[in-house]
Structure formats: C-alpha cells, structure tokens
Design a binder for these strands. Structure first.
Lengths: 330, 330
DNA sequence: ACCCCGACTGGAAACGTTTCCGATCACGCA
DNA sequence: TGCGTGATCGGAAACGTTTCCAGTCGGGGT
C-alpha cells in the first residue's frame, strides 16, 4: 500500500481511507488513489486489514451432513447471501459425534470469524456454552434451536398437513416412520413431526396404536426396513407418514418390491419436497429449503450491522399432492 | 501473548516458539508456557500469526453445484482431510455463469488462501490464467482438468463398462442420454462418457444411429424428457445408457409412467452409484466420490509440504449390476 | 585450564493495515 | 481584518505474531 500511496502522492493514511471508502476524502484524491491501485494491481492484505481493523469478514458455518440434499441446499442459500455481502464462508463439517465433540471442544473457528451459523442441528447446553464463549453472533437455520435467532419451518404444522391429508382421504390406520439422526444417538426423532402425528390422530378420534410407529435411523435404506416392519403387522396400515422424503423413498422401494400398488394398496406421504419427489410422484409437504438459508444469511447480516434482531423466523410449508396418496381401498 | 510470556517468565520470542512447537525450546520451558496459556485460556490470533508468518492456513474450494449429491460428497471428503490437517476451508460456490465470471474476475480468494481446489468443473483458458495469477497451489478433483494435479475417474472407462454391460446382454439398439451442465452453455456433454458410447458400439460392429443420442441439460426432469423422446422414435432402443444416475432416475420415471417394465421392456444403466440408485434398483457404474475428495485433499497436503507431486490420480470405477438391466425381450 | 560448539533464550525488526490526533487551509461571518 | 469552522490530509501508534540476529551458558574435547 505504501507504493500506492507514493504513486498517488498521498500518505498511507489517506490511501487507506480512499480505498476503504471513508468519508472526508476529496473526490479527486480518491480518484488518484484508486487509479494508482489499479495500475499496480494492488490487493489489500486481509490479514493486516483484519489485524488492524478488528473484524474478520468471515463467518463459520457448522453443518452436520454435508452430502444430504437438505443441508447442502441450506448451505447453498446461505452462502449466496453471505458472498453477496463479501463475507467469506468458513466451512465446518461435524459429521459424527467425535467431530462434534472436537469442534465444540477445540473451537477451531475461535478468533477466526465474526459469526457462527449452525445449520440443521440441535445444540446441547454444554455446546451452547462453548459456542457463546467465542463471543460472536450466532444464528441457526433449518433446525429446532430456539436459543438463537433462527430460521426454520414449523415442524408441527408440517406434520399436521401431512397427516391431515391422509385423514381427509379417510385413512384410519396410518403408520409413521420416524427418523433419528444416526450420528447423534442421544437425540430423539424430530419431536414436532412426531407430536403432530399423535395430535392429528387424537383430534380425529382415532385410537393410538404404538405398533404403527416405527423409529429408524435416518436414510433411505432404513425407510425400506421400516416399511417392511409395518407390512409385517397383523393389520398393516393403509397409509404411511414418513418424517422425510428420503425415508419415504425407502418405503416406496419396499412396497414396490412387495408387489403392492401405490397409492392403490398403500398411500405414502413425506416431508421436504426433495427434488426426487417429483420423479417418484411422491405426495409431500414442501418446505422452502434454500430460502431458509438465504433468510438466515440476511438475519445474520442485520445482526452484524448492529440490529437487535430478536427471535426467529418461521417459514411456511405447503402440501404438494402427487400420485402417492389416494383414499384407502374399500 | 505478552501476558502468557510474562506469566511463564519468558520472552515473547520463546513463548511463540513454545506455542508453535519449534525445536530448540527446553522441555521445561515449553511446559511452563503451555500451562500459562492454558490458564489464561489464550488463543492465538490467526490474523497476526498469518501476517507475520506468511501463510494463511486456509484453502479455497470452488464448487459449481453445492446441492447436488456428487459435489457435496466430494466436498465432504475434501473437507475431512483438510480439517484433519488444521486447514480451514473457504467455500466459494459459483452457481451460474455470472458467479463464475465474477469469481475469476474479482478473485475474492486472492491473498486469503494458500491453495485452491476446483471441484468437478472444467476451467477455461482465461480462467486458468486468472487462477494462476493468485500464485498459489491448485488442485482439481472430480472433473476433467488435466492442467493441474487432479483426482478423477476415467470417464471413458466408466462409460465403456456401462455400455459393454448392455452389449453383453445382447442389446443391439442402445440409446444414450447425454447431460450438459445447464449453467455452462459453452461446454459439451461429458466427452469421455460420450466417446465411450460410440467406441463401444463401433467395436461391437453396430452402426451409429445419431437418433439414439439425446442431449439434455443435466437433471432428473431432463432425463424424463429425454426418455420420452427416445420412446417416440419409430424404432426405440431396447436399452438406455445415461450419463448419470440422476438422469437415469428421470428416464425410469418416464418409463414407469408409460407403463413399460424395467428391465423387461427397457434396460437402464447410469453412472455414479448415487445413494438412491440402490433404492431405485438401478444398475450403474459406481465411482468412489468421497474418496476422490479425500485423495484430492491428501494431494494438496503433499503439495503444500513442498512435494513435487506431478500429474494426477485416476481412481477406478466398477459396474454394479442391479435390477434395471436384463437381456432384451426377444 | 582453555576453547569451541550447540542448545537455549531475549531484543527488536518486520508483516500491512486502520485510526487517533493534530495540523493545515480555505472560507464565511462579524 | 480577525476568527471560528469544517473539510482534508499526514504522522505515528497500535494490532499480535514470527523470526533474524545475537548473546549467554554449560559441557566436552584437547
């Protein structure tokens, strides 16, 4: 930068001000500095800038399952608005319990970022403490973290939409395939989505039959297993509500293999509106995933600019009826 | 750090050496310094460290399609080995042509990283120039970039495995659904995978029928369209080779909807071994995606530690036969 | 007993910005 | 004409490390 200043015939102080768009710099001076910088193809050193300035211009994004569509899409949305704002994204993938422990213990992002975004995972109390010890802004998206400014869907509402749809079709024996995160043994299956099932059945005056609920680790293969278990019941359901589309895909696979017709012999509904759902002709409750990412990004931006953005933002879900649901066979 | 040094009763120079594991520090001294650091829960300032040291400890990862399984999985693998090595991952998603132009023009990663990893995308000549002007190491993974140390599969070999499988089943009319990247209009469909098709047919003494090749933008829906087009031929193929599993899923959807049986009426083979392929019972050529990411990471690590790692690494693919292929109906 | 050497440590100069604090200067107003 | 005022700019002190360059000190070889 000294070179630039010299070439523009100003002091470093002025050069710095001109380059970072400070007020109180004469237009002509600024022009000269910018021209000089251009000619020397000068690029500011972020390290030095941050050292002197205080902020890092970076945001840590913590994500538990990078290769799953939901998380990757969330990240996609988030990254796009952060990039727009010239913030860099530091990616931390905490795949399994070990990674997770390590991340919260060592806090590799400490001192490296201005904020942390937690994508689609609950944060335990001890973890929250560690996170807060970093002294930066924290935002959550796509999960059920109420302790921070967050963006998320209403899982209860989503589940209700799915189950009510089946009830409206006059199904009376409805199974649920609940999915737990395989890498976090401690956590229960998505509580909102489970509760919605029980509440909707109760509201319809239907008896609760624990045998109709199967809980499996998340994933397509598990969904297939779960469906097999439901089929082996003395009196199988006529419809199945899966916690997510991927799980539903597994269920469909089992049904096909068993020679059952969808929706003739069994209706299936999922949650997510995974891109593959359209191809699988799956009725599902759509949630705007990418938008949750962008909304979280904007939330973070306003936080960084000093706003006192309090609570969270709940985005709407909507039922998408396709060919996998129909009234039960008489 | 001054505090730590004082508390340990040493100079800052020594404290720095102790903390960064330099040789020539007495064991006892190091112990004292580390203890002091621990007590003060001291965390080094990366900015200052980088400023003085020269390296950044960061790696830029450029990826064109974050939410697609293939890229996300590649990234997953890469991130895991970089994290292991205590390198931070700076994520740059260049979704469309605009993003791309912007990235290579502004080079937002300049001066911020020690290396760049390009995931699954070809790099044009002009872009290569810009990239190299950053003066850092460059590694490619999952794509067909020969100009840099890379990790990738042999697309020709993969295509050959797929088409040969169909030929071995005695198919004589084999269609191909070629996929082009929708965000990069200039680039052709994967050349290796296309060439393999033509070569395999020629080797089997079959005539080339341009009508049997349909080129569509990448994606499931496009795959469905492409299949519809193939079905509308006067003499449709008895088997289809799709450039990727996702495209094959679309094709399957169309076939189902048309009431055709798989593999009875039509065999389908893809490339990738997408997690959903197992559920869709799709015969495919599996490629080790995550491993390509980790291999690229290790390649980069060795480069950063000064090795003269020349060319690239080609990882093997293997045919996975499932239920979507069978001999043609007589 | 003397010298050389290597292990260890300290002082201080970078590294490249931002920003505080004055200094200068032109200008409008009394 | 004298003076307050605000815009503009320069000097220099941070920011928190790493590392070069000496300097000290104990010990082994002769």
């Amino acid at each position: 930068m000294a070179d630039v200043a010299r070439r523009a015939g100003v002091s470093m102080a002025t050069a710095s001000r001109a380059l970072s768009n400070h007020p109180h710099v004469a237009a002509e001076t600024r022009r000269r500095v910018l021209a000089a910088a251009e000619q020397l193809s000068y690029v500011i050193s972020p390290e030095a800038s941050r050292l002197a300035g205080g902020t890092t211009g970076r945001v840590a994004v913590v994500v538990p399952h990078l290769s799953r569509w939901f998380f990757a899409t969330l990240l996609d949305g988030l990254e796009s608005v952060l990039r727009e704002a010239d913030l860099d994204v530091l990616l931390y993938h905490v795949g399994d319990a070990d990674d997770r422990r390590d991340f919260f213990h060592r806090l590799p992002a400490r001192r490296k970022v201005d904020a942390v975004v937690v994508l689609g995972m609950p944060v335990a109390d001890g973890e929250r403490e560690r996170l807060e010890s970093m002294g930066v802004h924290i935002v959550a998206a796509g999960g059920q973290v109420e302790n921070y400014p967050y963006v998320s869907i209403d899982d209860g509402e989503a589940g209700r939409q799915a189950v009510d749809h089946l009830l409206l079709l006059k199904h009376r024996r409805i199974g649920m395939i609940a999915a737990v995160d395989p890498t976090e043994p401690g956590w229960p299956a998505n509580p909102g989505r489970s509760r919605a099932y029980h509440e909707a059945l109760a509201a319809a005056g239907l008896p609760a039959d624990p045998g109709l609920v199967v809980t499996v680790p998340w994933g397509g293969l598990s969904g297939a297993d779960a469906m097999a278990r439901l089929l082996s019941l003395r009196e199988p359901p006529t419809a199945v509500y899966a916690h997510s589309d991927e799980v539903a895909f597994g269920a469909i696979h089992t049904l096909r293999r068993a020679g059952l017709r969808i929706p003739g012999d069994m209706s299936v509904v999922g949650i997510d509106d995974h891109p593959m759902a359209e191809l699988a002709d799956l009725t599902t409750v759509a949630q705007p995933v990418r938008e949750q990412g962008t909304a979280a990004g904007r939330l973070l931006l306003s936080l960084l600019s000093g706003a006192e953005t309090g609570g969270g933002l709940t985005v709407p879900t909507r039922l998408v009826v396709r060919g996998s649901t129909a009234p039960p066979r008489r």
